[in-house]
Design a protein around this nucleic acid. Structure first.
Lengths: 193, 193
DNA sequence: CGAAAATTTGACATGACTCAACTGGAGTGG
DNA sequence: CCACTCCAGTTGAGTCATGTCAAATTTTCG
């Protein structure tokens, strides 16, 4: 199991000592996931918080018309989980699906709580991680309520330059909240400028 | 200074001991704020994290057409701050304004960091607080990208039953991302059902 | 190679915005 | 207590942004 990526990831926030690394390692499980494979499906409780070592995931909701709405993408060095379900242990309304062949490291809630309890540094690390995620999400809400679809698309390209050439426009459309057809028209209109 | 509300608020997560209460108290500042008064304006760094003891606030962005877009409301027992600006110490793009005469308790970033450093329990508490805020915000994003304006309005009424009879429809419209005129039409259409 | 998915295009429908006008309180000052 | 203003809310006409559906074309990946 290669835990180097996650150790380096944490070290960006607070360096871990030997003991913390050892304990963390003992709680992590490595998994290989194929394209189109799910690591969470609607109705299941989200049992793991997932760190992406390599590959790409989307988390989305399916509405009552059967349409998918992307809430989040995660690539290497990112996290993905339905935090609401993970903490409350209620069934999730979301899906998490691999967009590419991926390698992940997972931790369960009891194991994470063990780390919080015995190594308070993890409280700190995850506080900062989620603060950053919160800030990102807040920007997205502001954009949703104040920008046109074209602006949201251009902002997506700017904010995720390493993503847009890796996922399909269908996925981007679902993320910015428009139909694929309309995104296609937006792209055409941008191109002819 | 009445710090009882904030102590009880924290105790919902983790009980504080005497020492922690004493230190917390020494870091908090109480303020009275009048209706329409700002506690944050665009261009200023958000210097305080604010706990609302009583009253009501809105946090919003003004777009380049001069229109306001409400990002968040906070009433008694809630928090409000531009967390991005607070942590990065960059100028904020947001306003925070009192909708009612209010009483608040504020803490600065250095004081909060002092608490984090010496009383790790606060890392825990604020991790949980922001996790909850994150979950709430995630639901809102999902709604924005998957619901009609009418659905968003009905959900607002359901999710904030103690708010909708306290703020104007102009404010609600700005929060759910429609014009006041269109909200008026939505309300009429709902009423005639 | 072949099937499935992604993308594009066009005609048409509708949700939501803009602007301007009007109504009806809730304060406020004389 | 009246006249006045100010703001929230409503209404309607016209417009624009975006969605729907169906079909043709291209790309991707197994």
């Amino acid at each position: 199991m290669n835990i180097k990526p996650i150790i380096e990831h944490f070290s960006n926030y607070v360096p871990l000592n030997e003991m913390e690394i050892k304990e963390l390692k003992s709680k992590l499980t490595e998994k290989k996931v194929k394209r189109r494979q799910f690591i969470l499906q609607e109705g299941d409780v989200c049992k793991h918080s997932t760190f992406v070592v390599s590959g790409c995931f989307k988390m989305y909701k399916v509405d009552n018309k059967g349409q998918e709405h992307n809430l989040q993408f995660s690539i290497e060095d990112g996290w993905i989980a339905d935090i609401g379900s993970f903490h409350s242990e209620y069934p999730s309304k979301l899906y998490i699906e691999a967009l590419e062949q991926s390698t992940i490291l997972q931790i369960t809630k009891p194991d994470l709580i063990f780390l919080y309890k015995h190594y308070p540094k993890f409280d700190r690390i995850f506080r900062v991680l989620i603060e950053n995620a919160f800030i990102t999400l807040q920007k997205r809400v502001l954009q949703n309520i104040s920008s046109t679809a074209e602006e949201r698309y251009l902002d997506f390209l700017k904010n995720y330059p390493n993503l847009f050439n890796r996922i399909s426009n269908v996925q981007i459309a679902s993320y910015i909240g428009v139909t694929p057809e309309f995104l296609s028209k937006i792209r055409k209109s941008i191109a002819t400028k």
